[in-house]
Design a protein around this nucleic acid. Structure first.
Lengths: 152, 152
DNA sequence: TTGAATTGGTTTCATTATGAAACCATTTGA
DNA sequence: TCAAATGGTTTCATAATGAAACCAATTCAA
């Protein structure tokens, strides 16, 4: 592979996000963390990921501030992996992925898990809106490019 | 690698989405497509991706119904790659990634591109809400698991 | 209208990332 | 107190990726 291109320098925020969480496993681990999993063995069982890979991914997710290792809640000797605030703020990303998957990747009638408000049971969704709350589609949104500050 | 695990059978819609668009390049290509790029050489230049990889990715994005190949708009002989409706519906995913990146992956004061309403110039954003419009965070949302239809 | 450059790929090859399995030290648990 | 589970690390084979070379068809420029 020679060297996987980094998008750190890109001025597109989506590209930087993908640079940080765009690999095969990271978002799945984050999903499981949202789901309440905290222990190495839980992630490993849930994802069927090789242990060495899980180990490395947890390490980099911690290095990137998305997870943090905390002592076991029950006083045990093991560590637990918890989402940081930065990690929890990936919630809209997860919901967006879920919403798209629900719409396109299930047969009609096929069952899937659903995300609901814990208190009211209402379905949870998300939409792109302008500041004043109007719905907006890709055709009406434009990306304002920014002059590269490196090149004055 | 022996065989990359497929999540097709998973009943979590996020997992299926990641199975389809969760690889390193696909969402970057989709981002460029949102940005109006249509030609092989445009994607290649924009992403710095190897041509064989781009070729293969375009092929699978088409196979998965996210892009479609259409004859050149200007009557030329080449093809153009356009988003399908399924592809355009990834818009919230892109916006969610962008929003997170803006928040966490730029130095204070560092410039980045911004997404705005073409007509009013207003910033575009997205939030997770319940059906009746209340904002909701990860702590208040729960995933309703679904019994596996395969195992009655 | 001919020659050169561009486009849109494919093929080949070297290298990296991944996955499976084996291994191991430490903690539980019975 | 012995056995199993936990939380990894190491080793090795293989798959995915990237760079470069190559090539046919198209477009451009003189």
């Amino acid at each position: 592979m020679v060297k996987r291109r980094s998008l750190k320098g890109d001025y597109c925020p989506s590209a930087r996000s993908l640079d940080v969480i765009g690999d095969w496993w990271s978002l799945l681990i984050v999903r499981d963390a949202f789901d309440g999993l905290t222990r190495f063995s839980e992630f490993q069982k849930s994802l069927g990921i090789a242990k060495n890979i899980l180990s490395e991914r947890l390490r980099t997710l911690i290095a990137r501030g998305i997870l943090k290792a905390v002592p076991a809640a029950n006083g045990g000797a093991h560590q637990e992996y918890h989402l940081t605030e930065k990690g929890r703020d990936l919630f809209p990303v997860m919901v967006a992925l879920r919403q798209w998957g629900e719409q396109y990747l299930f047969e009609p009638g096929e069952k899937h898990s659903r995300l609901v408000d814990r208190d009211t049971g209402q379905a949870v969704r998300l939409d792109v809106r302008t500041e004043d709350g109007r719905l907006i589609g890709p055709d009406r949104a434009v990306i304002l490019k920014v002059a590269d500050p490196e090149q004055p």
